[in-house]
């Protein structure tokens, strides 16, 4: 699980072009939107593409996105649960 979170943070930094930021600087539990990293709606689209491209996981219901993209912890849990149920 920790490896997945680290990998996810690296992918997030690359996809969102978070220049100068390192994976260890992103708190696993901190909110990605609003406070925390301060991401916005365009970043949400980038995260949807990231999940689909790297993990072959599609967010079908936009309401799920809110929960899934809350933090690195929630994203990692979601990916793991999808991989286990596949």
């Amino acid at each position: 699980m920790e490896d997945l979170k680290t990998k996810l943070k690296e992918q997030l930094i690359e996809a969102l072009n978070l220049e100068g930021m390192k994976p260890e600087e992103i708190d696993n539990a901190a909110p990605l939107f609003g406070e925390g990293l301060g991401l916005d709606s365009i970043d949400a689209l980038e995260l949807i593409v990231l999940l689909e491209k790297n993990y072959n996981i599609r967010i079908e219901d936009p309401k799920d996105g809110r929960k899934v993209f809350h933090s690195i912890d929630t994203m990692a849990e979601f990916i793991q649960s999808k991989q286990l149920s596949a």
Partner: peptide, 13 residues
């Protein structure tokens, strides 16, 4: 490369 799927919005914008 991605068969017109999963396109990043930022580069398009």
């Amino acid at each position: 490369h991605q068969n017109e799927q999963m396109l990043n919005p930022t580069a398009f914008m």
